[in-house]
């Protein structure tokens, strides 16, 4: 493929002779760009501490990747943007007020999870950011609890109550505005559903996001929440389902973790099944088990099922 042609022109290249121009750096930097709205909005909402955490996390990830390349004598790939994306996602998923060593170590774990354990980009089975998150949750649970944040715990409780109070008035413009723009959790990624969706629309328009996954994921979350609310006799189940979809970090996780390119199925049917599985497990863990990290675990669980999904949900061969 890569031989230089001499004058004899004995080295021939293979078709196709033209290329779409798509590349791994293009994908990774697009994802980084898609995270910009939520980064900017969260810096405005939570203050400079959020921006600091994001910068520390991203630079730590790049540094860790550089160290890995130098230590193991691999080509230096920091320019492809994958480390930056991992760093940004780590920072966006942990509480903005956490001490700065937490995002730094979290990014290090993420790079270890993708490079050291699975030998590189494209070969990791589990989402490295979620792996890192689970490790952090096991080692330092106190920092990841929703209580740890720049707001007080009471404020959070009052806030959550406020969202559900609004939901109990039915689907009103006030509810929708609150769901789209108000922060619903301590992590910068949860700053605003609207900002997260803006990033997703950008990625879909560039043909990069596996959009079927978040669609199936959030659809399943909405349906299960609706059924649960109905069964529990909560009035206005529709508004409650809407609030469940747009509040909490689920939307951010569905769009940027579950729809990760590498650790998800490659077929259209497989992507839908993967998303539904994530949604179902999130519902089961959240409503019936009550663990923290429910969404992270459900995505990791489905990551493990990807080889199976790809094997049994193949596209239909033309004419077969």
């Amino acid at each position: 493929m890569t031989e230089q042609k001499g004058t004899s022109n004995l080295f021939l290249t293979v078709p196709p002779h033209i290329h779409s121009g798509g590349s791994i750096p293009r994908i990774m930097w697009s994802i980084a760009a898609a995270l910009l709205p939520v980064i900017i909005y969260s810096s405005y909402l939570y203050g400079l501490i959020a921006l600091g955490s994001i910068l520390v996390s991203a630079s730590s990830a790049v540094l860790a990747e550089l160290m890995y390349s130098l230590l193991f004598k691999k080509p230096v790939t920091i320019k492809d943007g994958s480390a930056v994306v991992a760093g940004l996602l780590v920072a966006l998923s942990i509480p903005a007020g956490a001490p700065l060593w937490l995002p730094a170590l979290g990014s290090l774990f993420a790079v270890i999870a993708s490079r050291l354990i699975f030998t590189g980009l494209g070969r990791n089975v589990f989402n490295p950011v979620l792996c890192s998150r689970v490790v952090m949750a096991a080692l330092w649970p106190v920092y990841l609890k929703s209580g740890w944040n720049i707001f007080s715990e009471n404020h959070m409780a009052a806030f959550q109550g406020e969202v559900y109070d609004k939901a109990l008035n039915g689907i009103t413009p006030a509810l929708i505005k609150s769901l789209l723009l108000d922060s619903t959790g301590p992590a910068p990624g949860e700053a605003s559903a609207l900002m997260v969706l803006m990033g997703a629309v950008f990625l879909i328009s560039r043909g990069i996001m596996k959009w079927r996954i978040p669609l199936a994921f959030m659809g399943t979350v909405a349906i299960t929440a609706f059924v649960f609310c109905k069964a529990a006799g909560i009035p206005l189940a529709g508004a409650c389902a809407l609030a469940t979809v747009f509040s909490g970090g689920t939307l951010f996780y569905a769009l940027f973790m579950a729809a990760d390119i590498i650790t998800t199925p490659v077929t259209a049917a497989g992507m839908l099944a993967f998303g539904m599985g994530c949604g179902l497990f999130s519902f089961l863990i959240r409503f019936l088990a009550g663990w923290p990290e429910g969404v992270s675990y459900s995505i990791l669980l489905m990551n493990g099922a990807v080889p199976l999904i790809d094997r049994y949900m193949r596209p239909r061969v033309f004419g077969a």
Binding site: G120, L121, I262, T267, M271, V317
Partner: peptide
């Protein structure tokens, strides 16, 4: 500038090839 001559990388499982295959195959696999 119309051709790509350079290295290739391991599959990143983006699914683009599955999406475009007119024969309904999984070229990445």
């Amino acid at each position: 500038d119309q051709v790509y001559e350079g290295p290739f990388h391991p599959c990143i499982r983006c699914g683009s090839c599955v999406n475009v295959c007119p024969a309904g195959l999984m070229p990445c696999e």
